[in-house]
Design a protein around this nucleic acid. Structure first.
Lengths: 348, 348
DNA sequence: ATGAAAGCGCTAACAG
DNA sequence: CTGTTAGCGCTTTCAT
């Protein structure tokens, strides 16, 4: 073994087979190989076969970087979400990547935990990597930075959030309407003292849900000042919900008869905390979530929530993004109708 | 508006700011700009500042494709897993992407549902996209195809599976030992009639878990022919577990006193199915899972399982992969010790 | 310490 | 139909 060989097991650049090699082997020019691959209709049957044979014999795989450099486009997309570990995003991402891959695109998913600087860094990272478009659930207060991304020629599609800018596409369920259904249901069930566990930051869907909560309380003649206690979770997840509930109980104790979670994941944390505190759901306190993640129905106390079609949201987001990028047409805005799912966590 | 303008909202290639433009603005050559970015120590303080200023004023973002083409390397990785919607993989992926991104790499995650052809297509796709390395949980019967990937100069690291080939790295929990803990616990609790919901295919971790189950039964003098009923789930997830349980009950009815799920996700499906059938867990039937996904502890009946440190597995996998790819050293094999987590689903 | 210049592998005119 | 050729934007010797 010579000094330059190293371990056979090590990862070492392999002798690359380029288009040149294929051309040589097939006895044609590189241009013909390129055409055979990308515009087969321009190449005669015979040569096309020769080229295909050479390609498979050599195990040739085109170099995406070279192609991108030349064409100025890539076949890759990015997704920037709050937290891939949250089932809502996990399921969405699962479908986003399926659609992307089916259409020949790679998808890079990044989690921000709603930290603005991380979101900015993620967008930057993706642009640097040359993505054609990005699906994002943003924590940014407004869309100006995303518009700037769009202006760089990178498509932007909001996931689970509304867009107020025609340059930015979106697909989401009507959060306001969804929360309205939830709160009306609670009030109808006789609940009067509300706790609300909000998500951190100013994420659009969180803002919309909170607004709906306030609105419905007012419409019902329940002054928020007297009937609503709000807490902001450190993160819209299990631990965030758990900690927020501790605070809620410390502030209002058993006077609460309903806790509205910003989403299911958080609401599950709320229920765990309630359970630890010896409170019963729904007898002492009703709990609601938002999303209808698959475990919502399998909890000790199944959770009342608003269903969001995660698979569909993901598929539509990426589908629209690719369509718009490829056709050069504007992004579409798509609003889905929320569906109330009543389970035991709010029964009377 | 001229014909070529189109909608202002459409996604259209923007005028790219290249290194050329930066060089011009800073009054230096492109070589200096490149050096200022990649090898700042070679550039004088003064010029470096000028370049940095020009970069931020122009909003310059380097073109990764050009860099890759030139250097022959990319900063991207792939991950091929069974199902990103499964919390085990979702959490692992969350940490894989975090580590990858922190080190400057993009990570493309693909789900195969354990379908061999889709796994092959995924590997091919990733290689075509020029990934430097791939983290994979494979459904392939042996590692030969993965070794072929390694031989192309692409690093391969197994996630949650053992590698028997030095060219392929791995990080996983000892599945055999884990299942041994679980089954010994069940037997100790007095369970004698076992149902087993296996995953489809020949995934290494599934094979190892099943082998351990058989082994422990034999060691306990419980002939599998008489004490074990096996069913293969269509997929190792909720629905797979649910359907498999229906079959199990149809075959053995109430004679079973324990059902071993191939993983938590599947076991939760098992419990749902049992509940629908009016059977009580753990009174009538004990249920176990594998993974300790976060919801295992919050179920109506908390689930006894083996803890797999998903965050750690993901972080280690990508960390090792990048280390090996960058240093050219061989991949490492890392085995983690399983930990039994006893909860109510198996109490006596 | 800085710049000039040669490509990396591929695609897209264009010429034949 | 097929081949020749000119770069895409960047890194990296090699001179200066």
């Amino acid at each position: 073994m010579t000094a330059t060989e190293g371990h056979i097991d090590a990862v070492r650049p392999a002798p690359r087979v380029g288009m040149q090699a294929v051309a040589q082997k097939a006895g044609v020019s590189v241009a013909t190989v390129s055409n055979a691959i990308n515009r087969p209709e321009l190449v005669s049957q015979a040569l096309r076969r020769r080229v295909e044979t050479a390609i498979s014999e050599l195990g040739y795989i085109p170099n995406a970087a070279a192609r991108s450099l030349r064409t100025g486009r890539t076949e890759s997309l990015g997704a920037v979400v709050f937290d891939l570990a949250n089932p809502f995003f996990a399921v969405s991402a699962r479908h986003m990547s399926n659609v992307a891959n089916d259409r020949g695109y790679a998808l890079t998913v990044m989690s921000t935990d709603q930290v603005i600087t991380r979101e900015e860094a993620s967008l930057d990272f993706l642009i640097r990597h040359g993505v054609r478009g990005i699906v994002v659930t943003t924590a940014l207060p407004d869309l100006s930075q995303l518009v700037a991304v769009h202006d760089r020629g990178v498509g932007v599609m909001l996931l689970a959030q509304e867009s107020d800018n025609p340059a930015i596409g979106s697909v989401h369920v009507d959060d306001f309407a969804g929360m309205r259904l939830l709160v009306e249901h609670l009030i109808r069930s006789g609940r009067r003292q509300f706790g609300f566990v909000d998500g951190p930051g100013r994420a659009h869907q969180h803002v919309a849900r909170r607004a709906a909560l306030l609105r419905v309380l007012e419409e019902a003649g329940l002054d928020p000042a007297a009937h609503l206690t709000e807490v902001v979770a450190s993160a819209p997840d299990l631990d965030g919900g758990r900690a927020a509930t501790v605070e809620l109980l410390a502030r209002r104790g058993a006077s609460l008869d309903a806790i509205v979670g910003i989403n299911d994941y958080t609401a599950i944390g709320v229920m765990l905390s309630l359970q630890s505190a010896g409170l019963s759901v729904p007898d002492d306190i009703a709990v609601t979530g938002f999303d209808d993640i698959d475990i919502a129905k399998m909890l000790a106390v199944p959770l009342t929530t608003i269903r969001q079609p995660m698979a569909e949201l993901g598929s539509i987001a990426v589908g629209q993004l690719i369509d718009a990028c490829e056709s050069g047409s504007p992004m579409s805005q798509r609003v889905l109708v929320p569906e109330l799912v009543i389970r035991r966590s709010t029964s009377t």
